[in-house]
Write a protein that binds this DNA or RNA. Sequence first.
DNA 1: AAACATTATGTTATAGTATTACAAATCAAA
DNA 2: TTTGATTTGTAATACTATAACATAATGTTT
Lengths: 134, 134
Amino acid sequence: MNRHASAKPKLTRNQTLVLDALAGAGQPLGAYALLDVLRGHGFKAPLQVYRALDQLIELKLVHRLESLNAWTVCCDNHHKDTPVFAICNDCGVVTEHFDTQLSNGINSLSERSGFVPDRSIIEIHGQCDKCGDA
Amino acid sequence: MNRHASAKPKLTRNQTLVLDALAGAGQPLGAYALLDVLRGHGFKAPLQVYRALDQLIELKLVHRLESLNAWTVCCDNHHKDTPVFAICNDCGVVTEHFDTQLSNGINSLSERSGFVPDRSIIEIHGQCDKCGDA
DNA sequence: AAACATTATGTTATAGTATTACAAATCAAA
DNA sequence: TTTGATTTGTAATACTATAACATAATGTTT
Ligand SMILES: [Zn+2]
Ligand SMILES: [Zn+2]
Ligand SMILES: [Zn+2]
Ligand SMILES: [Zn+2]
């Protein structure tokens, strides 16, 4: 028997295609960009992409970047904490981070105002280290 | 002379209409909801709304909620820190907060990764205190 | 295997959000 | 009052996301 509570569930064909396309891109892609990438694999309608993305998010393999209308692969799908995304204005690269101070801040702010947090979004736009090496 | 560096600039007609509509709503509104509200005042096209919103954001009188595709009036347009929005899943009420721990967290995380932050987005979805009084 | 339920997929149409392009009107100096 | 800059009006279009319905594949029970 498997000691790991949640073994990686087998992905469907479309989910696998979308996940691979996202991983291969090296940066976030929008739904229609994904559709274009996957037309060669038989995708014909946006719904095929959106459905796969919904399921991949449910499985925590992919995150949606709200401020970009785009999706990116999770860097470590076992994490519990709220991911923090740093988004470079210049090159478009996005990096995923975890930060105890930020997670605690979300919780304590919520507690102070009687709010029960469920899903948090932290996205930082700015300039990455590479692009800052002017 | 005015000791206050940036006196409140006079708003144009459309900016005033949009700001008042947002303030009157008591909760965030989308661009097309604003358009509908303002049809009685002569608005006929989405661009009238989007243009006014862009300028109001520039003036820091309004914030965009990225995860809702909606806009809300700023609670105190003099603030320097990143606003934190708590968004109730049940009643839709949104409250704006400031939090030193979160602001510091953004800065220190950025510094550690050589990132220069420019604009940060923090939006917490969950259940507000009122809706939690079940 | 046959019947049934469940899940995944295909396809078309439509809804919702945002911007481009160009014309007209307004406003503020010079 | 001419000029130039800003604001506004309007139509067309682009981009993003979902609804509705049909078909196919899969799994489970009998
Ligand atoms: Zn992740
Ligand atoms: Zn960069
Ligand atoms: Zn504010
Ligand atoms: Zn509530």
